[in-house]
């Protein structure tokens, strides 16, 4: 039942993202990508948070299941960060004239991708399971500390072409027309549910891989 609802919710988002007028008239038709770009970025932050929380639980309980949960969340987080980067650079091509401009927002997401890329390099470099889990848990905590800084602070401190007030204004008040909200918030909810679904599957797959390796 939940799956059907998710299917209908995302279909609703896709259809209305096309039918309603473009969310940012000044940026033109391409701004419709907003409904997918921002939720992708949101899911990546959420996934990195979930990864850090499971890393902390692993350090407390020393149960390898939490390591699997933590690394699976990071994998999905990296995927969605990549999707946000790709959708963002498509938008940049139309609005700013080039796919990549080394705008502060692009630099910060690039650093974030490198940080989480290094997380997997670290995991693949350590063979012993307990050591790998402990190191990754500590790394996931350190890596997440950079997330709010790179995602929310850097692009607002440095002068950037990227809009900083498309969802909330400087007083953290939602600033969107009702029509845009009618598509944007369902999209956020849909992406979040999709994340938890994919995450649970990834955890199951990783658990099986570990079982096969162990036995």
């Amino acid at each position: 039942m939940g799956k059907i609802l998710l299917f209908l919710l995302m279909s609703y988002v896709i259809i209305w993202a096309y039918i309603f007028p473009a969310p940012q008239q000044s940026l033109g038709e391409v701004s419709r990508i907003f409904y997918f770009h921002v939720p992708s970025a949101w899911v990546s932050v959420l996934a990195f948070l979930v990864s850090m929380l499971n890393g902390i639980i692993y350090l407390k309980k020393r149960d390898l299941n939490y390591d699997i949960k933590s690394s699976s969340a990071s994998q999905i987080g990296l995927l969605f960060a990549f999707l946000a980067t790709v959708s963002g650079s498509m938008w940049a091509k139309v609005s700013w004239g080039a796919y990549w401009n080394w705008d502060p927002r692009q630099v910060s997401i690039f650093i974030l991708l490198l940080i989480y890329g290094a997380y997997f390099a670290l995991r693949s470099a350590v063979l012993e399971n307990d050591k790998k889990a402990a190191l990754s848990a500590v790394y996931s905590i350190l890596a997440f500390i950079t997330v709010p800084f790179l995602v929310f602070i850097v692009p607002r401190v440095f002068e950037s072409l990227h809009p900083a007030t498309s969802v909330v204004d400087q007083n953290l008040k939602i600033q969107m027309s009702p029509k845009v909200s009618l598509v944007f918030f369902p999209s956020l909810v849909g992406f979040t549910i999709l994340f938890f679904w994919i995450w649970s599957l990834q955890v199951k797959i990783s658990q099986r891989v570990e079982l096969k390796k162990g036995g």
Binding site: M10, S11, I14, I15, Y18, W197, L201, K204, I205, R208
Partner: peptide, 30 residues
């Protein structure tokens, strides 16, 4: 046209995740 293409991509992604989900559930029962 673009709308139909994106809807089809979404349907394909959804069905694939569903298929994976049911396959993993079946595996657990065995």
């Amino acid at each position: 046209m673009a709308l139909i293409a994106i809807l089809l991509i979404w349907i394909a992604i959804f069905l694939y995740i569903w298929y994976l989900d049911s396959k993993l559930k079946k595996g657990n029962k065995k």
